[in-house]
C-alpha cells in the first residue's frame, strides 16, 4: 500500500497543464501563495501554515466575490507531508478554491479555522484524531468519532492495525473461517486486508 505508491505524487497543484491564477486571487493574497494553479476551472493554492487563517479570511470576506462557503475541511496523508485541505466555494455558484497547508509529519501544527467558520469545529476534531494534527486555539479539542483508547492516528498510511483491540477484533466466526479451509488464504494473498478496519 504505501510502498507501491509512486514518488512523483505531485497531485494537481503546481503540476503540469495548470493555467495561471486569477488576477483577483493573486492580487489579494500576494506573496502568501507558495504554489498555485488552476486545474479544470478549480483554483488550487498552497499557503504556509502561519498564514492560512489570514489567507482564508481574505478569500472569504475581503474579496469582491468572496469564497465564503466552507464546504469541507479534511486532512490528507501525502508521502512527504500531512496536508490540510480547505474546500471553499462562492455562495450559490460552482466557483471553487482549494486551499492547502503542508505540514511536517512529526508534530504538525496549524491555527484553527473556527474563528472564521464554526463549520471547522467538528471537521478539525476529526482531522486531529485521524492525522494527529494539532489545531492551535481550537475551542474543544476532544476526540470526536474514535473511542478514547485507540492509539495512533488511523488515517495515516503508516498506522498499524491493532489486532487485539476489543472493538476491532474479528468475531469468532471470522476467526474460525480460515481454519475451515485452512492453508488457502495464507498462500494466495498474505495479509491483504489487514488495514481495512473491519470494525463490525
Amino acid at each position: 500500500m504505501q510502498d507501491q505508491h509512486t514518488s512523483d505524487e505531485e497531485s494537481k497543484q503546481g503540476g503540469s497543464g495548470g493555467e495561471p491564477l486569477p488576477a483577483a486571487i493573486a492580487a489579494a493574497l500576494g506573496s502568501r501563495i507558495t504554489e498555485g494553479a488552476v486545474v479544470d476551472g478549480v483554483v488550487h493554492i498552497t499557503v504556509p501554515a502561519t498564514e492560512v487563517i489570514e489567507a482564508l479570511r481574505i478569500l472569504a470576506f475581503e474579496m469582491d466575490e468572496p469564497y465564503s462557503h466552507l464546504s469541507d475541511l479534511c486532512g490528507v496523508d501525502r508521502p512527504d507531508c500531512i496536508e490540510v485541505v480547505y474546500h471553499l466555494f462562492r455562495p450559490l455558484s460552482n466557483d471553487a478554491c482549494v486551499v492547502r497547508v503542508k505540514l511536517p509529519r512529526t508534530n504538525p501544527h496549524v491555527p484553527t479555522a473556527t474563528v472564521l467558520w464554526e463549520t471547522a469545529n467538528w471537521a478539525e476534531r476529526e482531522a486531529a484524531e485521524m492525522y494527529g494534527i494539532t489545531f492551535e486555539g481550537h475551542p474543544d479539542p476532544r476526540r470526536l468519532l474514535l473511542p478514547d483508547d485507540i492509539s495512533g492516528y488511523p488515517l495515516r498510511k503508516d498506522w498499524e492495525y491493532p489486532q487485539d483491540h476489543p472493538y476491532l477484533r474479528r468475531e469468532p466466526l471470522h476467526e474460525e473461517f480460515p481454519e475451515i479451509v485452512g492453508r488457502v488464504r495464507a498462500e494466495a494473498a498474505p495479509a491483504e486486508d489487514e488495514r481495512d478496519g473491519n470494525s463490525k
Binding site: H5, S11, K12, V76, D77, A96
Partner: peptide, 29 residues
C-alpha cells in the same frame, strides 16, 4: 494521478466525494 471534489444534492444537503488517486488501483484518499 489527480483529485476530484464531486458535489451532488442529497436529500439532506450538499454531499461531496473527495477522491485522490495516486495512479494505482486503489484510492489514495
Amino acid at each position: 494521478v489527480g483529485e476530484v471534489y464531486e458535489r451532488v444534492e442529497s436529500p439532506r444537503g450538499e454531499l461531496a466525494c473527495y477522491l485522490i488517486s495516486d495512479g494505482s488501483e486503489k484510492p489514495w484518499r
